[in-house]
Design a protein around this nucleic acid. Structure first.
Lengths: 161, 161
DNA sequence: GCCACAAATGAGACCGAGTATCAAGTCCGA
DNA sequence: TCGGACTTGATACTCGGTCTCATTTGTGGC
């Protein structure tokens, strides 16, 4: 069968590493796989736990280092959850965008910057600030969770509990 | 004999406490004063240090508790700095708004939500998510810092970057 | 003013996320 | 094959924040 989207993404991450001159060591591959296997956001602790369950006694520091590396390559991005804790999401390193996160299942989607850029410009002009960066985070319920919540409607979705 | 803007704001905070049924103890007043005296954002550690310098041996927990309380009354709001650390800003508890923070001097301004609400609605409609909350944070350089940075040239430039 | 009770406090233990250090292991080019 | 650079795991540490608990303070009823 055709390579799944997920292993595709793993490969994309590995390539990004190599392109930037880093070694694609087994550990980093593992992290890439785990990251790619996540539909939504995840915490570092999450990843570490999954990593250890997978097979290896991978070090805490190694996971943090790998995540930091991926973040610096813009392959993953750090997110601030409303709870105040941090999470990561995989994302497209090429376009500036924002994240829409399901507060129920944790799934995350990229949202193109588009109109926001204009709005931010506008705010800058009005306030006199020269705006260097902005961050928009959106939290809500994704369609499948909404469907599941309304009870019987829940088709064969299998959204995790 | 009009009270200064700052003690005015202190009073506003104290009133908010009382209105919500909390005691306005000396410690909480102190925190209110310190918070009101800040032009921009501040960290909890910041506040603790200033509090201790002021006069008291105020406990760490007390400061955190007071901040948490004020945050629950929406008198202050928690901010996620690009560095990943947390800060607080005083703000208007009545209107939904966002923060524009000077990454140089730390000064912070409220930005009305306005157009963003429409944009967020739009994103929700397009993505199928039902969006429950959103957060926009803007970082840049405020006019005075920009002026200071460009040295003597200061005046002429203004907004037209 | 006194009393009883609830709220608030300070000290300090604790916790979890993240970083720093360091010695050992691995990779890769000469 | 060798040597240096990169990577790794263990572990100690820092830092923001929370929890616990005994003590203190404030408040309302008498």
């Amino acid at each position: 069968m055709r390579p799944s989207i997920k292993s595709d993404q793993t490969e994309r991450i590995v390539q990004a590493l190599k392109r930037a001159g880093y070694q694609a060591t087994p550990n980093r591959r593992l992290v890439a796989e785990l990251v790619a296997a996540t539909g939504g956001h995840f915490t570092a602790a999450d990843l570490l736990e999954r990593g250890r369950r997978e097979r290896v006694n991978i070090g805490r520091a190694t996971v943090f280092r790998a995540l930091e590396l991926l973040a610096s390559l813009r392959v993953v991005e750090r997110l601030d959850l409303p709870s105040g804790s941090h999470a990561y999401v995989v994302c497209d390193p090429d376009a500036h965008h924002h994240h829409l996160v399901c507060s129920n299942c944790g799934k995350s989607e990229d949202v193109a910057d588009g109109e926001l850029a204009r709005l931010v410009d506008d705010i800058g002009r009005r306030s006199g600030y020269s705006i260097e960066s902005h961050r928009l985070e959106l939290f809500g319920t994704c369609p499948s969770c909404a469907a599941a919540a309304t009870g019987t409607v829940a088709t064969a979705r299998g959204v995790q509990a």
